[in-house]
Amino acid sequence: MQQDDVRNGLFTPSAEDLAGVEAWFAEYDALAARGAVEEIAGLAVFPLNLATDVPGGFGAVRQWDREEFVRVMTEVMGGGTAGTETTSVRTPRFLTPNLVLVETEATVTVEGERQSMRYADLLVRTADGWAFQTMVQGGWGHGWPAATRG
């Protein structure tokens, strides 16, 4: 967990580091199953960065404050994900001891319909533990303006 754990410019996470990220996602998944959006918001650092794409083939980015996150995720999660069958394979890539990019490949089954997705989260280590700060997933950008350079 210390900066001196970085060798040749690359951080190699310990079993404890990996377990910490796995525990964070276990907590997140349990909260999502209950639809506990306010508690999930407590696991984030705001403003929260989002990157997605919009119809037409361009990327889009936004920042959400806590209020917007709670509003949108309450609409998305409804009463929670407990009625869905979800399998997730998460691959954490530690950039430093305090920054980890986690790619998730998930399959969700709702009423017999399967949907596969891939998304990523940037977690940052805080004094209170891991928190997500950036969410990246395609398909959320309906109605969002396309990103522009400069």
Score class of each variant (00 low, 15 high):
Ala146Tyr: 02
Arg93Glu: 15
Leu10Pro: 00
Trp130His: 06
Arg71Ala: 10
Tyr119Leu: 10
Ala131Arg: 14
Glu38Lys: 07
Ser88Leu: 14
Tyr28Lys: 05
Ala19Met: 09
Phe25Ser: 03
Thr12Phe: 13
Asp128Leu: 04
Asp5Pro: 00
Pro13Trp: 06
Gln137Ile: 15
Thr87Met: 12
Glu16Ser: 12
Val76Trp: 15
Gln2Gly: 09
Met73Ala: 05
Asp4Gln: 11
Ala36Tyr: 03
Phe25Cys: 07
Val6Ser: 00
Met135Pro: 00
Gly80Lys: 02
Leu43Ser: 01
Val45Ala: 07
Gly9Cys: 08
Glu22Val: 03
Thr86Leu: 11
Tyr28Thr: 00
Ala44Val: 01
Ala33Asn: 11
Gly141Phe: 02
Phe94Glu: 12
Gly59Cys: 12
Ala30Met: 02
Glu85Gln: 13
Asp5Thr: 01
Gly79Trp: 05
Gln133Trp: 06
Leu95Trp: 04
Leu99Arg: 13
Ala120Trp: 05
Leu95Gly: 04
Phe132Pro: 01
Thr96Val: 13
Arg71Tyr: 10
Gly138Pro: 07
Ala41Ser: 01
Val100Lys: 09
Arg7Met: 11
Thr12Met: 08
Trp130Lys: 04
Gln63Tyr: 10
Glu67Pro: 04
Glu22Ala: 13
Arg66Ala: 10
Glu75Gln: 14
Thr148Ala: 15
Thr74Met: 06
Leu10Val: 15
Gly42Thr: 07
Gln133Met: 05
Leu122Tyr: 02
Met73Asn: 03
Leu101Val: 10
Glu85Gly: 05
Pro92Lys: 06
Thr126Ala: 10
Arg71Lys: 13
Val110Met: 12
Gly138Ala: 13
Trp130Ile: 06
Arg114Val: 07
Phe94Leu: 09
Val72Thr: 12
Ala26Asn: 13
Thr148Asn: 09
Val108His: 08
Phe11Pro: 08
Tyr119Asn: 10
Leu48Lys: 02
Ala82Ser: 14
Arg125Lys: 15
Arg149Gln: 14
Arg90Phe: 12
Ala146Lys: 07
Thr84Met: 13
Leu123Trp: 09
Arg34Val: 08
Glu111Cys: 01
Phe132Tyr: 11
Arg93Gln: 15
Pro47His: 04
Leu31Arg: 00
Phe69Ser: 01
Gln137Trp: 10
Thr126Met: 10
Ser116Met: 04
Ala51Leu: 15
Asp29Ile: 01
Gly80Ile: 05
Ala106Val: 13
Gly20Trp: 08
Glu103Phe: 09
Ala127Leu: 13
Ala120Tyr: 03
Ala127Pro: 15
Leu10Trp: 14
Ala44Ser: 01
Ala26Arg: 11
